[in-house]
């Protein structure tokens, strides 16, 4: 039938699109290797267990935001009894590098860099640009 050419062309196009991730990754040589994150040198333990931070750090940040901005509480008692200042720049970024930690993983999983950094500053970057 004369339409068969069109139908098969369309089908091939569809198959190409569906398998796009496979040939893209195979051609680009992508492997399942996770991004290389620069971990803090001076600290062994974050404010919450690793498994919690990996999945739910945004929940913690929202909770901190609420406590500090809305409730006026600035101290956070961690699971291990340590007390931290609830500050993104002052506490989180004192250990972690925004560029080499936050952004790297966010880019990897395609979570658009949140608009935290529209306002909150990375102390390391400020220091670098001041120099």
């Amino acid at each position: 039938m004369r339409d068969k050419v069109w139908i098969i062309a369309g089908l091939l196009l569809f198959l190409g699109l569906v398998t796009y991730p496979a040939w893209h990754d195979l051609v680009a040589g992508t492997t399942a290797k996770p991004p290389q994150l620069v971990l803090p040198a001076n600290q062994k333990q974050c404010v919450a267990p690793l498994s919690y931070m990996r999945t739910s750090h945004m929940k913690l940040l929202l909770q901190w935001r609420r406590s500090v901005v809305r409730d006026g509480q600035t101290k956070y008692v961690a699971f291990d009894g340590k007390v931290y200042n609830m500050k993104l720049s002052g506490t989180c970024l004192r250990c972690h590098s925004q560029q080499e930690f936050c952004t790297r993983c966010h880019n990897y999983v395609g979570v658009r860099t949140p608009y935290c950094w529209n306002c909150h500053l990375d102390p390391a970057q400020v220091k670098r640009s001041a120099r």
Partner: peptide, 9 residues
């Protein structure tokens, strides 16, 4: 810039 205080957007 004062890194201890956020700028605004």
């Amino acid at each position: 810039l004062n890194p201890d205080f956020p700028t605004r957007t």
